[in-house]
Amino acid sequence: MQPMFLICLRYCNNREEAEDVLQEGFMKVFDFIHQYNHKGPLEGWMRQIMIHCAFRKYRNNRLLHPVVDITTTEIVGTAHEEILSRLGTKELISMIQQLPPAYRMVFNLFVFEKMKHREIADLLGIAEGTSKSNLSAARYILQKAVTFSLQSSKINFK
């Protein structure tokens, strides 16, 4: 349960959305459990379902989130005195969640799912160059976010 929820957290904007995706994912697991062929670990199969559900959520919502031009990203500083000494995992995940959806998807697929740009491009229906570009932009934003977090500020893209 916990690993699945982490996946959802990574792919979603916030905790509530992650819970929705988790719920939808488990519904699919129960509905299609008969299709599990026991060839691989059950966790891997469930993981794929969760990612698929997150994709669906992304497709439905992505039009509402314009791609952010990183040169114009406005970083609003937020005081986090404690994060200056140590970056918590929660804060880092929150940074991922605050990425623009397209960047977040590419970053997650590339970093955590170990997919190649070609596969990501096929999966998302985008060009391979776009995938690379998105990944690069995601990394840049995250670097900035971590830096600013360490400098007692919080990134906000909204």
Binding site: M1, Q2, F5, L6, L9, R10, A18, E19, L22, L87, T89, K90, L92, I93, F112
Partner: peptide, 10 residues
Amino acid sequence: AVQRHSDLPT
């Protein structure tokens, strides 16, 4: 960070 993180849904 993600590997070390633990969280449960409500």
